[in-house]
């Protein structure tokens, strides 16, 4: 893990963490291939909060799946931290993703039979990132960080959707990755809960994480520091958002109160 990270850091140019070049994806159908992505070029800087915005079918989910390596492009390249992720073998990519990328899904996707703590330690277990004896402790701290420590030993079906998404975010943080990627993370939540989740995302940015989210909701997109609009497989606009509509004063920064940076923890 350390080697990958060091290699990644050395490969970064001008603070560019994610570099997408000429990405093309065609979904084959018997009738005619559907071009989901028609040559995407994109750079994401360290510490950026990028929103990829577009209508259904615009290709934004396809793009994010290329960045997480869940789906592979027909041509073009994705480099994250200097690593060309689509040139890796399946297992290499899986291991790399587990350690360097946290993924948050619209439907939370927690494992139903495991408790919340176990859902988080599982990620550490697969990647073998923290000593066995330390994992539960770290998972509890992460749950604390997302504000649901009191439910730590419940199974996912016993908590609400918003709480499940918090656990999913804590799980994404389990191996202390540099990048968090989220596909419609609040698509299934009511507006109040969604607000809470975005507050949590803002906290992550302040901790130095890079965040990429996908949404079809303009309002949500406005909360990011940069908004990329995509339509019919092309980027049609990219603009910085100097004043993210994130009213930090409206809520207490949970992070600053009760969280020790995972990096510091890792060093402990």
């Amino acid at each position: 893990m350390e080697i990958a990270k060091i290699a990644g850091k050395n490969g970064r140019e001008n603070g560019v963490l994610i570099n997408v070049k000429d990405l093309v994806k065609i979904y084959p159908t018997a009738a005619n291939g559907v071009e989901a992505l028609k040559g995407i070029n994109l750079e994401v800087h360290e510490g950026e909060f990028l929103a990829i915005f577009g209508k259904s079918g615009a290709g934004k989910s396809t793009l994010i799946n290329m960045i997480t390596g869940i789906d592979s492009p027909d041509s073009g390249e994705v480099q994250i931290g200097g690593a060309s992720i689509h040139s890796m073998s399946d297992d290499e990519l899986t291991r790399w993703r587990g350690r360097n990328l946290g993924v948050v899904y619209q439907f939370f996707q927690l494992l139903p039979t495991l408790t919340l703590v176990e859902n988080i330690t599982l990620a550490m277990d697969f990647c073998d990132t923290y000593p066995l004896a330390k994992r539960s402790e770290r998972a509890l701290q992460l749950l604390d960080q997302v504000g649901i420590r009191e439910h730590a030993h419940k199974v996912p079906s016993k908590i609400s959707g918003g709480q499940q998404q918090r656990v999913a975010i804590a799980r994404a943080l389990a191996n202390d990755p540099d990048v968090i990627v989220a596909d419609e993370p609040t698509g299934n939540l009511d507006s109040q809960t969604a607000d809470d989740i975005y507050d949590l995302f803002s906290d992550l940015i302040s901790l130095g994480k890079t965040l990429v989210i996908v949404t079809h909701d303009q309002e949500i997109a406005e909360r990011a520091s940069r908004i990329l609009e995509i339509s019919d497989g092309r980027i049609i606009s990219s603009r910085s958002n100097d004043a993210p509509s994130n009213d930090r004063s409206a809520h207490e920064a949970t992070l600053s109160l009760n969280c020790v940076s995972p990096r510091i923890q890792a060093a402990l």
Partner: peptide, 12 residues
């Protein structure tokens, strides 16, 4: 018409 989803965490 109302629709309330009951979860063990509370209702929505």
């Amino acid at each position: 018409v109302s629709k309330i989803y009951e979860t063990s965490a509370g209702s929505f």
